[in-house]
Write a protein that binds this DNA or RNA. Structure first.
Lengths: 154, 154
DNA sequence: CGATAGTTTCAGTGTCGACCGAAAGGGATC
DNA sequence: GATCCCTTTCGGTCGACACTGAAACTATCG
């Protein structure tokens, strides 16, 4: 007897959350992301998320605030409805990735400063130079690559 | 009155360590990396690192083990010398970056599995598709970019 | 205005990991 | 083999942070 689609989806959500937990995103935040990516309908209230993800209202609130803040989730309020609706903002994933790239490229300013401190001492700066060259190349290429990213469909 | 080069270097090491602390590398590990990148001579024993970075022998040992393990530092033992010598393995920085790229690209298998679970439900898979497309593109382009990386000098 | 339904805040709890320092372990020299 | 020196292991402490649940807050509707 095969397991249902919803069961497999919740297992998938858990894997999804586990991956981002390794990147420092709280488990519940990752679950929210995964859930909002596949739920039907697309919008959920905090209370619904709390129930379906079996997480306390406090955790949901904290993590929604964080996710809205980084743009991955958007909050919509409607007159006549006191409950706000949350949904995935899939467009924001590009910014999410870009921040990762920026973090990598930013090391170059660090190695660059180091090189400057060692200027006039080529012997000693050899090790740093290798690293600086790599990051220098990355901080050229990553933005260039990023320019070529495909436009999000419609 | 200007501060000495060594003073500025230790400030630089601290900045360096702080950056990688944000990426999840323990502070002391980051200090070791920064220090080994600029110290003269290039090799240090654990005891020396402990003294110069003002960290306990235990912390130094733990972090060296970790850094050697990921390849960023190499350990050399010599007959007639009981103290092992540690030095930066600047070549390994490329692997270090590559692991980051791999981590990004690996999300694609995740989103791909999700898409499969939602197959036959185009309406519902729209959100995931956007994300999947982005990661699909990345997992094509990042390895391609990586191929073009400059060779380390000599 | 009162009642209701939802969200946010906050204090408290538990877990995890970095760090320390002392004790144990292992080579090297005599 | 005994001694010395250095490294690793290990128990313990501390601080950070995710999470909870109850209380405070806010908004809507009767």
């Amino acid at each position: 007897m095969s397991v249902g689609r919803e069961t497999r989806l919740s297992a998938w959500i858990e894997r999804f959350a586990a991956h981002f937990a390794e990147e420092g995103i709280p488990l519940i935040g990752g679950r929210i992301l995964g859930y909002l990516l596949v739920c039907q309908p697309v919008e959920r209230t905090a209370a619904e998320l709390s129930q379906e993800l079996e997480a306390s209202s406090g955790s949901i609130s904290t993590n929604l605030k964080y996710l809205v803040n980084v743009g991955l989730v958007s909050k919509r309020t409607r007159r006549g409805r006191q409950a706000a609706e949350y949904r995935i903002n899939e467009k924001a994933w590009t910014d999410f990735i870009q921040r990762k790239f920026d973090a990598i490229a930013s090391v170059q300013t660090l190695t660059d400063d180091g090189m400057r401190l060692l200027s006039g001492d080529p012997e000693r700066s050899m090790r740093l130079r290798t690293v600086d060259n790599l990051y220098g190349w990355l901080s050229e290429e990553l933005p260039a690559l990023w320019e070529r990213r495909p436009a999000a469909p419609k």
